[in-house]
Design a protein around this nucleic acid. Structure first.
Lengths: 129, 129
DNA sequence: CTTAGGAATGATAATCATTATCATAACGGG
DNA sequence: CCCGTTATGATAATGATTATCATTCCTAAG
């Protein structure tokens, strides 16, 4: 039940994720991996889910409802405009350091977190969103 | 185009959201409102989207893919177990105060944010997730 | 080396929350 | 009161994700 080693699919997924500069969707990942090896879309989803549970991959859901994944090493967060839908990356995580103190205050083991700001980007704000 | 006053549906949605202690899904909201007035599911979604764009309502997406909404007055955040899927509310927002400083450092107008920690709750952690 | 049991995989059908569509109803100004 | 616009309800369509199931791959025992 509990998995010790990564499966072939998980290895491929994790390796590709680490090469990405930005979070990527399961479908896009599927397209990329297919260029290298035979793989099914369901397997990509399964691998992502497993890696997520291991704490190696983190996820966030966009306004359009697709889930994006990235390796935990790249802890990325965004500001997303509710009008145009664009996401702008933060250059640093405002929670740096805070998560560890939270860790101590509860029995919960934290693997990763998602943080996203929503509002209006300047152009949309000017137009009058 | 830009909306000044709330529509009937938006008013009903916002009022009900303010009565909830926890974030609620669009469908559940729909069920609640239907008890009071004739309304369509699509209208609920439209109202939620509009309120979100106005910064009056905030949202988060659960692990199962449904979107939960709450009034911005109740700024709620959670720790979610990747194994059993349960969410545990934080009693305070670790970002309190930080968001405003971020506000100043960019031209982005922040309405709200989502913050969620993922990992393992104690029971799942013990079993060996 | 061969084989049996369990896990992983691929293809595809099914699910389900959300959106798009479209005809109708409500609204606001002239 | 009438016209153009916006909101609404009902329902069909969409699309990402999940379930299903037969097959393939591994691993470890014999």
């Amino acid at each position: 039940m509990t998995q010790v080693h990564c499966t072939r699919a998980q290895t491929a997924v994790l390796q590709l994720l680490r090469q990405q500069r930005e979070p990527i969707s399961a479908q896009a990942l599927y397209t990329l991996i297919k260029q290298q090896q035979r793989i099914g879309l369901a397997t990509v989803y399964r691998a992502l889910d497993a890696l997520k549970r291991m704490g190696r991959v983190q996820h966030r859901v966009t306004l359009t409802g697709e889930t994006l994944y990235n390796a935990v090493e790249q802890d990325r967060h965004y500001m997303t405009c509710l009008d145009c839908g664009q996401s702008f990356p933060l250059n640093t995580c405002p929670l740096k350091g805070l998560a560890s103190s939270l860790q101590h205050s509860s029995s919960f083991t934290i693997y990763y977190h998602t943080l996203e700001f929503f509002g209006l980007c300047e152009p949309c704000s000017v137009q009058g969103g």
